[in-house]
Design a protein around this nucleic acid. Structure first.
Length: 424
RNA sequence: GGAGAGAUGGGUGAGUGGCUGAAACCACCGGUUUGCUAAACCGACGUACGGGUCAUUCUGUACCGGGGGUUCGAAUCCCCCUCUCUCCGCCA
């Protein structure tokens, strides 16, 4: 959510910057400006009435104490009209406030200046591409066939016990999952992130704080009986740890990492893009989250990108880093880098990580602030997060790219975690 | 699932209708003292929104879990909701 004062003071800037996201903000900004003026006016009137009311009430108290009941009664009569005014002003204030909020949350975050122009994924800027794309033998196959061949992932069994998109990992398949999680967490810890093990379900307030609610309600599984939501990413519980907080400037940046299962309803997707591990309702991910001082958030974003890059490098996967264009960015992000690894058997790039700076967009909702060391005033912090990494597509690429007639080779860095060096 | 208790500022915790935005203590911050640390003493110490000087300041309003009500006036009384804790039951 953009800051209201900022919109009021910089209406043209907001409209101009959102053009890059192909969002026409002119009407909303105009409405907000008009409503805000009305809101301030209403508040000024209401406050004045209330001040008068408070004054009279105090006088009545004094009169009553002195036993001057008749004078007190006279004073009481004066309050009736005031009371009615206050009620009306408060009502219209609340109504305007709600109206502003309702349209304020429709505005996406402003893209950073270096965000490329563009509409579609094709317009994303490839900022780096590294690693050899392996040349596979004639009879190489996509990962869902490998999964079956070596009996390490059973999609049908998942369908039986739960439904499509809930795979069952077996034997070395289960062990490599566990290995990847441990590897990612260890790497994050060594990079300075504090490991968190968060709840997998969150309440409504948390869903609101990170922006899943109220709009994207359909993307989360909802346990209606208890009104709890299954988390779509560890970002939700971890970022919400700091909701409604005023942190000390010296405690920034806060760096957290968490492994969690992630649950996504992702209704309406179909086709070969969702085959196998490409898109799931439940998957595993290690997330990294930072709460940052605004002056440093972009340096920290670069650090996070470097961290994710080191992971894909250690896994020996060919990868590329994209700076997302305005049209392909998420609603909440100011700058996003996507990581894609090349899946040799499917012959396409698979997104495995998305690293973003949200600036103060999330923190505004979360009421997440820090105390400025000079002014001693609370200032909204910046939040960042990234996948480091999401497992399924990494696993898909590992299986496909490392397949040989003798079996699937495990990257060196994972062998100590797996306890085996080949899947055969 | 059953029964009871509770929700106050960063923390502990007082406060049953008016001088309480809130005692006291602790923590944090500034200062004095001190060879340093500690101790002691003094002071400051919530957030949000609005108004004026728009730089330091000044000022109004709201907020004691959330919502509604009673009253001239509510942290305090009434109603509803949410959450937490304790005991019992069940259970990894």
């Amino acid at each position: 959510m953009l800051n209201l004062k900022f919109i009021q003071e910089n209406p043209e800037l907001v409209i101009e910057k959102l053009k890059k996201k192909h969002f026409d903000a002119s009407v909303i900004v105009q409405q907000i400006t008009a409503l805000s003026a009305k809101k301030n006016e209403t508040q000024a009137c209401a406050d004045q009435c209330k001040a008068e009311m408070n004054k009279i009430s105090k006088e009545i108290g004094l009169l009553m104490r002195d036993g001057k009941t008749t004078e007190a009664d006279v004073a009481k009569n004066r309050t009736a009209e005031l009371k009615e005014n206050i009620k009306q002003l408060d009502d219209s204030f609340a109504r305007i406030d709600q109206e502003i909020f309702n349209i304020q949350v429709l505005l996406p975050n402003l893209p950073a200046d270096i965000v490329p122009e563009g509409r579609t994924p094709e317009d994303n800027l490839v900022v780096k591409r590294l690693g050899e794309i392996p040349v596979l033998s004639e009879n190489s196959v996509p990962h869902w066939e490998l999964a079956k061949k070596y009996d390490i992932i059973d999609f049908e069994l998942g369908v039986k016990i739960t439904g499509a998109g809930f795979p069952v990992y077996k034997g070395k398949g289960a062990r490599i999952q566990r290995a990847l999680i441990s590897f990612f967490l260890d790497e994050a810890r060594e990079a300075g992130f504090l490991e968190i093990q968060p709840p997998l379900m969150v309440n409504e307030d948390s869903g609101f704080g990170t922006g899943q609610l109220p709009d994207k309600e359909g993307q989360m599984y909802h346990a209606t009986e208890d009104n709890l939501y299954l988390i779509p990413t560890a970002e939700v519980p971890v970022t919400n740890l700091y909701r409604d907080m005023i942190l000390e400037a010296k405690d920034l940046p806060i760096k957290n990492t968490a492994y969690s299962a992630c649950f996504r309803r992702e209704a309406g997707s179909y086709g070969k893009d969702v085959r196998g591990l490409n898109r799931l309702h439940q998957f595993d991910k290690v997330e990294i989250v930072q709460i940052a001082h605004p002056d440093h958030s972009y340096e920290l974003l670069d650090e996070m990108v470097a961290h994710v890059e080191s992971l894909v490098q250690k896994l020996e996967l060919p990868y590329r880093i994209l700076r997302l264009c305005g049209g392909d960015m998420s609603f909440t992000s100011a700058l996003t880098y996507d990581f894609e690894v090349f899946s040799a058997a499917q012959e396409k790039w698979l997104e495995v990580s998305s690293v973003s700076n949200f600036e103060s967009f999330q923190a505004n909702r979360l009421k997440l602030r820090y105390r400025d060391e000079v002014t001693k005033k609370p200032v909204v912090a910046h939040t960042l997060n990234g996948s480091a990494l999401a497992l399924p597509r990494i696993l898909a690429a590992l299986l496909e790219n490392n397949q040989t007639p003798e079996g699937i080779r495990i990257p060196k860095v994972l062998i100590p975690y797996c306890g085996f060096d080949v899947i055969d």
